[in-house]
Design a protein around this nucleic acid. Structure first.
Length: 475
DNA sequence: CTATGGCACGGATT
DNA sequence: AATCCGTGCCATAG
């Protein structure tokens, strides 16, 4: 329905188009900056904290609405994608490096809990708030709890207490949900709160945690049932739900994942614009979150718009207001369009490259931007822009540029790496030999190309390879 | 003579 | 139109 999608209309550069295109090139951080700037300069714009799902009208934390997406994917259960935002508490962060078919597939987590949280929070905060966040995160204890008082931080950093509390709230709600809380109870409460936004919550879970904490820890279930005037069986069900879906120390699963020894040097400097997570339920849909830049909804102040309609056209300054409103609504539209496009692209990428996301480099399927464009009925340049300057966090913890999904030779490089890694250390293989070994695997590449890949992988030439070359590769 | 790296060309992609 | 990628050719090192 929206004009900008069809390639044929590209001829006339409308304001929509140019604007949306520009926004598409921006990553989450820059987009947030852009919007912030607009908010400062345009009096007609406002950011309201709540977001309502267009489909169900429910309040959600970020688009797309988790409930609706869940419903949608429940309808078409073969759909490999499930949008969810924020993610459910990561009950157990599986994939503890055991079952990768090749040792290289088991890529260690490269970021700490603090980094993971900071990255998420950073998308919705300004510099000062990020500083505060970093400070809070540095004070977490082994279990991911935050036992000090926010006022201490406010004091040391010389910022308002209210600011610290706001940041703290953000951290607590980021994945893993419920970290940086004062105690188990607060952690569970927050998890319940977040879960309630996604709809899937046992009705008794929240009341029990809020009002019957004492009896709960004493396991006095009968008292709870009496107090809630609910059947004991229901209470037990609620407890089962709590047990299954909430975790007392969400941060714990993240502790000590260590810094990895992964090859490619270009590892850590990205801030993700989207996060893809494996589903705890094996074989289930992937979970995809696309960051929208700001927590809240950007809109033109409805009051201003309304009073503008009533005002006389010759009233002084009215032209300026009209201009602000026009520009504002244009921006709003473009931002929406941009996020929509980003989401569609994320969706299809996750669908197509599910294998790669879960199993590792070897399973990357060839994919070009133009193919994607055709499939989504977008112009190829649109896809290019959307992919540019973006990064995505994968379930294994790596943050990679989005363009990696379009890397034509990643799978081949992985094969090269595997071959070299498996061959006898006493007799290193030459590039020519590797090229020959690659043929039966379906990769027909020239010897010269093997050399290039080898270099990309940071592997020394055969004649320089010592038995323990893998330790000091990485050029 | 073998194994590699450098340079540059042509085709594909963006 | 600009860029990226695979390859061939040639020089160099061992």
């Amino acid at each position: 329905m929206f004009l900008t999608h069809s390639p044929e209309l590209r001829g006339q550069p409308s304001a929509h188009l140019t604007q949306t295109m520009r926004l598409l090139e921006l990553n989450t951080v820059d987009l947030a900056d852009e919007i912030t700037r607009a908010l400062e300069t345009n009096p007609a714009l406002q950011l309201v904290d709540e977001i309502r799902c267009a489909e169900c009208g429910r309040r959600v934390r970020a688009l797309p609405c988790p409930a609706c997406m869940q419903k949608r994917s429940a309808g078409a259960d073969d759909s490999p994608i499930l949008f969810l935002s924020p993610r459910l508490p990561s009950a157990s962060r599986e994939s503890d490096d055991d079952q990768g078919d090749s040792p290289l597939d088991a890529i260690p987590q490269t970021e700490s809990l603090a980094e993971h949280l900071l990255r998420q929070v950073a998308c919705a905060t300004n510099r000062l708030e990020q500083q505060v966040a970093a400070n809070i995160l540095s004070r977490l204890d082994e279990c991911g709890s935050f036992t000090e008082h926010p006022a201490e931080i406010a004091l040391t950093l010389n910022v308002p207490l209210e600011l610290v509390e706001r940041v703290l709230c953000l951290i607590q709600r980021a994945d893993p949900v419920g970290t940086a809380t004062r105690d188990v109870r607060q952690s569970l409460l927050i998890q319940v709160d977040v879960l309630s936004e996604s709809g899937s919550l046992h009705p008794l879970a929240a009341p029990i945690l809020t009002s019957y904490w004492e009896p709960l820890v004493r396991r006095n279930y009968a008292a709870i049932a009496r107090g809630l005037r609910a059947p004991l069986a229901d209470v037990k069900n609620a407890l089962r739900f709590i047990h299954r879906n909430l975790t007392p120390y969400p941060g714990r699963a993240w502790q000590d994942n260590g810094r990895g020894v992964t090859g490619s040097a270009n590892d850590v400097y990205y801030q993700p614009d989207m996060i893809i997570t494996g589903n705890p339920r094996p074989g289930g849909p992937l979970l995809v979150e696309v960051f929208t830049g700001l927590a809240g909804t950007l809109r033109v102040d409805p009051d201003i718009r309304a009073s503008l309609k009533q005002a006389a056209t010759d009233e002084p300054g009215i032209a300026n207001w009209q201009k602000s409103v026009d520009e504002g609504s244009l921006l709003v539209k473009c931002v929406q369009q941009r996020n929509h496009t980003m989401r569609r692209i994320a969706e299809i990428i996750a669908t197509r490259q599910g294998e790669f996301i879960l199993r590792g480099d070897a399973h990357l399927k060839p994919m070009t931007r133009s193919l994607l464009a055709e499939e989504l009925d977008l112009h190829e340049s649109t896809v290019s822009r959307a992919v540019a300057n973006k990064a995505v966090a994968l379930p294994n913890g790596r943050i990679v540029p989005l363009s990696m999904f379009f890397d034509r030779s990643l799978a081949v490089r992985d094969a090269v790496l595997n071959i070299i890694k498996q061959e006898p250390q006493s007799a290193p293989l030459s590039d020519t030999q590797v090229a020959i070994l690659l043929k039966p695997k379906g990769y027909h590449i020239a010897r010269r190309t093997v050399a290039k890949y080898r270099q990309m992988l940071g592997i020394l030439p055969a004649n320089l390879r010592s038995p323990n070359f893998l330790d000091n590769r990485l050029a």
